[in-house]
Simulated scan of single mutants.
Amino acid sequence: MILEVAVIFLAVLWVVTIAMFMGHTKRQRTLATQQVEADSLRDQRIRELARRLENYQGGTIRMGEELHELRATVAPLPDKITILEQRDPSTLSFAQAARLVTMGASVDELTQSCGLTQAEAQLMTKMHGNG
Rank of each mutant, 00 (worst) to 15 (best):
F21C: 00
E65F: 07
H128C: 03
V7H: 00
L41Q: 11
L3D: 06
T125A: 11
L49N: 04
L3T: 02
E69Y: 08
Q35P: 00
R51T: 02
S113H: 07
L13P: 01
E4N: 05
I2T: 09
D79S: 15
T117I: 07
I8K: 03
Q57V: 13
E54T: 08
S106I: 10
I8M: 04
L49T: 02
Q86S: 09
G64D: 12
Q57D: 11
I46M: 06
R29E: 14
Y56N: 02
E120D: 10
E85G: 02
V7M: 10
I18S: 08
T117M: 07
H24I: 07
A50Y: 01
Q96L: 03
F21T: 09
Q34Y: 00
V5E: 04
Q34M: 12
Q57N: 12
V36I: 03
A105W: 06
P76M: 10
A19H: 02
L3N: 06
T25H: 08
A38K: 07
D108F: 01
E66Y: 11
E109S: 04
Q28T: 01
A75I: 04
G115K: 11
A119W: 13
E85M: 09
S93I: 08
A119D: 06
M1H: 08
D43C: 01
A32R: 12
S113F: 05
T125C: 15
G129E: 05
L49M: 10
M103W: 02
Q118R: 12
Q122V: 15
G58I: 05
S40V: 01
T33P: 00
G129V: 12
I46E: 02
L67E: 10
G129F: 05
I81A: 14
E37A: 13
G64K: 14
T73E: 13
T30L: 14
L123N: 13
L53K: 11
L84K: 12
M63F: 15
G59A: 10
R52Y: 06
Q28F: 00
T102Y: 04
R99H: 04
E48G: 08
V74M: 15
Y56I: 03
A119R: 15
G104C: 11
G129I: 09
A121P: 14
T91A: 02
Q57G: 03
L92A: 08
S90F: 00
E66Q: 11
V36W: 01
I2L: 09
R52F: 04
R51M: 05
E120I: 02
N130S: 12
N130K: 14
L110H: 03
H24P: 00
E69C: 05
V12S: 06
I81P: 07
Q34N: 14
E48P: 00
D108I: 05
T60C: 13
G129W: 01
L31P: 00
T125W: 03
V74K: 15
L53R: 11
F21H: 04
Y56T: 00
S106W: 04
E109R: 12
R71C: 10
Q35L: 09
I83A: 15
L100E: 02
R52V: 01
E120R: 12
A97M: 10
T102A: 09
Q86P: 02
N55F: 10
L49A: 11
T30A: 09
T91Y: 13
V12M: 03
L3C: 03
A19I: 07
N130I: 14
Y56H: 08
I83L: 13
R99A: 14
M63H: 07
G23N: 05
S40K: 08
